[in-house]
Amino acid sequence: MKTMTVAELASEFDDCWDETERLKLILELGRGLDPLADEFKTEENRVLGCQSNVWVVSNVTSGVPERLHFDAASDGETARGLIAILLSLVNDKTPAEILALDLDGIFKQLELARYVTRSRSNGLASMINRVRDLAQQRHLAN
């Protein structure tokens, strides 16, 4: 899945008239998510706090400065769309750049705040925490 800027995402979501249109766009973005091999769908990679199963893994890319590339999967389609949006915002950035992002604020700007606050059903808040944790671990390791 390609990396998207906040402006690009905002422009796409701005064309949605209502929440259903917005959901359709979320699902469409989810369909662009690169598949994750089943071997990575482990308990360790599973994000707790999501009603559907969500798995997130991170890899360090070669080159200086090092960047993080995330892959993810979910058995729920809404959750898959949300994780796809999240990854499009953070993928191939440095850990420091990821940690500097106000991800909650960005989802609010995209008018997707309901998916952050309703964390128990879609788990976006847990996904954000997992991505930040992985970036933080890498940041501290450097």
């Binding site: 959901l23 009603q51 559907s52 729920g76 389609e77 809404t78 959750a79 128990r120 059903s121 879609n122």
Partner: peptide, 20 residues
Amino acid sequence: VHPSDVANVLDLAGIAVRAG
């Protein structure tokens, strides 16, 4: 259809149910 996805579409239609 995953129950969380069902509940999400129902929610957008104003219908409050529980999934899980």
